[in-house]
Each structure stands twice: as structure tokens, then as C-alpha cells.
Design a binder for these strands. Structure first.
Lengths: 136, 136
DNA sequence: GCTAGAACGACAACCATTCTCACTCTTGGG
DNA sequence: CCCAAGAGTGAGAATGGTTGTCGTTCTAGC
């Protein structure tokens, strides 16, 4: 079966994610791996990322730009995103770890949760200024 | 300034979203508008969606497939998504409306929040079965 | 060694989204 | 009423991240 050794590409990629602050896109991972002795084709990077995600080791979210960024699942970080300029700020707050959410088995309907995303979209202070200056 | 009448395309599009259960992609909105007397170019659909989003009238999230889907902001629904087959189920639970989240001004750092997304990714019951059958 | 099957990489294909640019519509003067 | 300026629009091209294809390489079992 698909034991750990069957996918020798998983380890280097996972380590790279763990060693890196913040999130990395598949393209960035591909670039960085080229610089090491674990150089890997882009298609394989995507394949391995999907495996790691389904194994519950890596989480993923889509930026407004459309690219997906990845991080280890244990990295419980969420974000504020400006819908105008795309600015991203960390949101030191998690609805799950705060514990106050009644996430019973009933609500999960048989789902086995692997990771979650929580994002607040709005206008950053700079874009609010521009809005006022522009009109309104 | 950008008063309501300056953007005559906003109303039909917004109404269409409000009349529709669930979320619509830009492409779907474009298709459906063609069938009405408010036919609109695809580029304009995207332009208007961005306007409505920045005006705080419409929210948006990215599906794993990469396409963005839109809904009225007041539609406070969240989702379970299967990372394997892409199945989406409603998650009748919201970390914001549950109120238990300490979302103070400090955390928002000047952001004016417009909408939020909360998603749980995991394996649906069907894909868990397959996983067991396949190996492991 | 030899074969079957999985994994891999280079490259093509895909497709949602964004960009371009010529055209139209509205608005305010003259 | 006509004209000019600016904003809005749409068709189609361009973009770019992601996925598919397919021949090659690697691994496991014999």
C-alpha cells in the first residue's frame, strides 16, 4: 500500500513547509526544492501536496489572486484580507481553538475534519482612507 | 460619485443572487443574465461583482476547483468540503453569529470587516469508506 | 536479470479571470 | 440641438495557476 516510503517526495516537501514561516504556494515550493538536492517536477509537487492534504498533514487555502498556499496543519493561523488591495494581515484568533463552537458529530454528518479555514474580508485602513478621499 | 444609478448593472445582478438558493459563479451569473433582458458581457459581470463585494453587498469564496462563487452577504452559510471528491455540504454553524468570538477592534487593526468565510475541509463518509477498502 | 506496476517530469491543455481597446452612452456646455 | 469629454461596456486576446498526457524511470517481486 501507500506506506510512508512509497512517497519519498513527501518528506522533503513537508520539512520545507515546516521550516518556513508563513504559507507557500506550489510554485514557490517548486522553486525552493530546485535549489536543494530534492529537485522535483511541478506536477509532482502538486501530486504530493494533494497527498499530504488528504493525509491531514498539510492545509491549504486560496488567495484572492487564485493561487493556493500551503502550510502544516498544526499552524493554526487565520487572516484578514482586503478586498480592494489584497493586503493580508494575520488574525490571531481561531473559532475552533477558542473552543466555544459546538462542533458536534451531528453537524459533521460523517465528515472526518482535517483542517479548517477562517477568513475575514474587508477594507484595510489605507483603502478606507482612499475611499473617503475619492468620494462618498 | 458612484451612486446607485451610476452602475445600472448592479441591480439585476444583485437581484439574481438574492433570488437564487445557494451560490453562483461569475460564469453562471453571466449565463443566467443572458437569458433575461439584462444581458451583460462577462467582463462587466466581473467588474460589477467586484463593486458589489467592495460595497459590502456580496460575499465570495473560492471553491477547490478554483472558481469563485458569490452570494448576498446576509446569507450567513458555511460549508464542509471533501478534499478528495470535492463534495460540499452545508455547515449550519457560524463562528461570528455564535457570538462567542472575541472580535475586538484591536484584532481588526483598522480593518472594516465586510464578510467572512469559515470552512471545514476533510473526508466525506463515502471517501472514508473507499480509503478503508483501498488499503490502510 | 526480467517484468509489471507505480511514480515521475516535461510539456501541452484547460479554464477562470483579467486586460485591452474600440465603441456607445450619458452629461454638461455652448 | 449639437458637440466634446468622460465613464461604462463588450468581444476577444492574454494571463497564469493548475491539471492532464504520455513516454521514461524507478521499485518490488520473481
Amino acid at each position: 500500500m501507500a506506506s510512508a516510503t512509497s512517497f519519498p517526495r513527501q518528506q522533503p516537501l513537508l520539512q520545507l513547509l515546516q521550516q518556513t514561516d508563513g504559507e507557500l504556494s506550489a510554485q514557490e515550493l517548486h522553486q525552493r526544492l530546485r535549489a536543494t538536492r530534492h529537485s522535483t517536477g511541478l506536477a509532482t509537487v502538486y501530486r504530493v501536496l494533494k497527498q499530504l492534504q488528504q493525509a491531514g498533514l498539510v492545509r491549504c487555502r486560496k488567495l484572492p489572486s487564485g493561487e493556493a498556499v500551503y502550510a502544516p496543519v498544526d499552524r493554526d493561523e487565520h487572516h484578514l484580507t482586503c478586498v480592494q488591495c489584497g493586503l493580508i494581515q494575520a488574525l490571531p484568533l481561531c473559532p475552533i481553538s477558542s473552543g466555544s463552537l459546538g462542533l458536534g458529530a451531528v453537524l459533521l454528518q460523517g465528515f472526518r475534519p482535517l483542517f479548517h479555514t477562517f477568513e475575514i474580508h474587508g477594507l484595510c485602513s489605507r483603502c478606507q482612507q482612499h475611499e473617503i478621499a475619492g468620494d462618498e
